[in-house]
Design a protein around this nucleic acid. Structure first.
Length: 292
DNA sequence: CGGGGCTCCTGTGCGC
DNA sequence: TGCGCACAGGAGCCCC
């Protein structure tokens, strides 16, 4: 699911709600999403921990606690964090008992109950729920998130890159531009949707070899990457399928997509049918006429 | 270094 | 109606 704009939307929503609150108890409904430490230690170390910050780095979230520990949450394809206020008419016992099974009359949206995998109970009666349809996401409770290889090898986010730097980096690469944009050690935070959208807006073919882009093309591509990411944040993320913001609501960025998931439809610029091919194992939509 | 394929999972939508 | 298959916002790993 979530690329930089979706993760940033969730971060902002959740941060507003859980900052300075203390975890009383952690319920784990799907143990496989907890990667470290072991479940028992994971729960014990979070008991009575107070949230001091909620950060986002590329597509990962880091919740910092007053006991010095970092909870690193990578949502992967279908993960999410939803804050459930104490005033929501939810019987937590019903929630536990019906997780993914019986349907009971509660005010919480069905997806959250159905796909809840971990529940953090907070000291004011509210809850932070980790949801994940496919369970590909990962939660880690560690001393310092910077120890993880993921963060050590993470490239700069687009907002911190300038045209010349981006061009120079592209010049060193001989791979297909589309796959390079998905490489987090090359540029951080971009995923399939925003890569495809940025390439369309920059009129660059996803098949181009990175070091063939001119300085002008590189600048335009970087500009469009920043633009689509900013738009994504403005419209609170792309809700293609399971993505929800930190309150369980859909984002409307999907309405602004120009090519993603539009194969067969007319290009909005030239009217040519949008094509879809597989690049780097991912579906890639583009206009064969506009994108050169 | 890079590309391709596979893996971790579950759900959905389509064609037959 | 039902079954099987393809595919889905990510990323690590292995092999060539």
């Amino acid at each position: 699911m979530p690329e930089l704009p979706e993760v940033e939307t969730i971060r902002a929503d959740v941060s507003d709600q859980i900052l300075n609150k203390t975890i009383l108890k952690v319920d784990v409904f799907r143990e496989s999403v907890i990667k470290e430490p072991a479940i028992k230690a994971f729960k014990a170390k979070l008991k009575n921990a107070e949230v001091t910050a909620v950060l986002r780095k590329a597509k990962a979230l880091v919740v910092e606690f007053d006991n010095g520990l970092d909870l690193v949450v990578h949502l992967r394809m279908t993960g999410g964090l939803v804050y459930v206020d104490k005033n929501e008419n939810v019987d937590t016992q019903d929630w536990l008992r019906t997780n993914g099974k019986d349907v009971v009359e509660v005010s919480l949206i069905e997806e959250v109950r159905r796909f809840s995998r971990v529940c953090f109970r907070l000291d004011d009666g509210s809850m932070l729920v980790y949801t994940d349809r496919r369970c590909l996401g990962e939660l880690r409770l560690i001393k310092d998130h910077k120890e993880l290889n993921f963060f050590k090898t993470l490239a700069k986010e687009p907002f911190y890159l300038n045209k010349k730097e981006f061009y120079d980096n592209l010049q060193k690469r001989k791979s297909v531009i589309k796959s390079l944009l998905l490489n987090q050690t090359f540029i951080a935070g971009v995923g399939n949707i925003y890569a495809v959208e940025a390439l369309f807006r920059a009129k660059i073919s996803p098949f181009r070899i990175a070091n063939t882009l001119t300085l002008e093309e590189s600048g335009l591509l970087l500009k469009e990457i920043k633009n689509v990411l900013k738009l994504g944040i403005k419209f609170r993320g792309s809700s293609i399928d399971s993505y929800r913001d930190g309150s369980g609501n859909k984002g409307s960025m999907s309405d602004k997509h120009l090519v993603y998931a539009k194969e067969g439809q007319d290009c909005l610029v030239c009217g040519t049918a949008i094509k879809k091919d597989n690049i780097a194992g991912r579906g890639t939509c583009y206009c064969p006429q506009c994108q050169k």
